[in-house]
């Protein structure tokens, strides 16, 4: 464990807790894409298939349970909670899951480290995580207004993966044979997808104005 990875995990944890707390306290999911949340639940499910078979550390297991629990809770709130679901804007959140799931699945079948079910699922989860934010970014551009909690949520999500890239660089130099180019590429693609959001987020923060994404 290095400081970059710990900071990345804490940022990631903080982002899902911010979102869960927001939905739980104001009982609203305005501006939140259910599609992205469902994709994240799928990412964690396919990423953590080994949660009960390979024990790595208490930290690792606890964090996996928190990520699984929070992502499914958020999906439950938006789908089932009698008050929250009313604020879900299904007419705007129309990004089709399978446009992202199918290509990631096909890619994982052809490009992976080892052709086993768990390894293909793990690779699929990496590819899917890289693009899972797209429905959320599309929704933000459509609704054009970003309440700052949602803005912070997306910012933290992007920051976590950027910190992971630093972690991979650090491990590459400190650990022999630590080369996993699939993880690297998926992580860099994911962070680049946030780049334009980061730009507008930083501009709005610098000019102290409301965050507006160009249409």
């Amino acid at each position: 464990m290095n400081i970059f990875r710990l900071a990345g995990d804490m940022t990631h944890l903080f982002s899902v807790l911010v979102l869960l707390l927001k939905i739980h306290t104001i009982k609203s999911c305005a501006g939140i894409s259910l599609k992205t949340q469902e994709l994240y639940a799928l990412v964690f499910t396919t990423r953590y298939l080994d949660i009960f078979t390979d024990f790595i550390s208490l930290y690792n297991t606890v964090m996996k349970l928190i990520f699984l629990g929070s992502s499914f809770s958020i999906v439950w709130y938006i789908r089932r909670h009698k008050i929250v679901r009313r604020s879900y804007d299904k007419d705007q959140d129309t990004f089709r899951h399978y446009f992202l799931v199918i290509p990631c699945l096909v890619l994982a079948v052809f490009i992976n480290h080892k052709f086993t079910f768990k390894e293909v699922m793990w690779t699929f989860s990496l590819y899917l995580e890289a693009v899972a934010i797209l429905p959320q970014l599309v929704l933000l551009q459509r609704t054009r207004n970003i309440d700052n909690l949602t803005g912070q949520y997306v910012f933290l999500l992007g920051a976590y993966r950027a910190l992971y890239i630093l972690n991979w660089i650090y491990r590459h130099f400190t650990e022999p044979h630590y080369v996993h180019w699939i993880t690297w590429i998926a992580g860099v693609v994911q962070t680049l997808l946030y780049a334009d959001f980061f730009y507008y987020y930083f501009q709005s923060w610098k000019n102290n104005e409301k965050l507006q994404l160009p249409a």
Binding site: I56, F67, K114, K118, Y164, E175, H180, T183
Partner: peptide, 10 residues
């Protein structure tokens, strides 16, 4: 860690 080093990451 099983399946290579990266499996110890979240």
């Amino acid at each position: 860690a099983p399946g290579g080093v990266h499996k110890d990451e979240l």
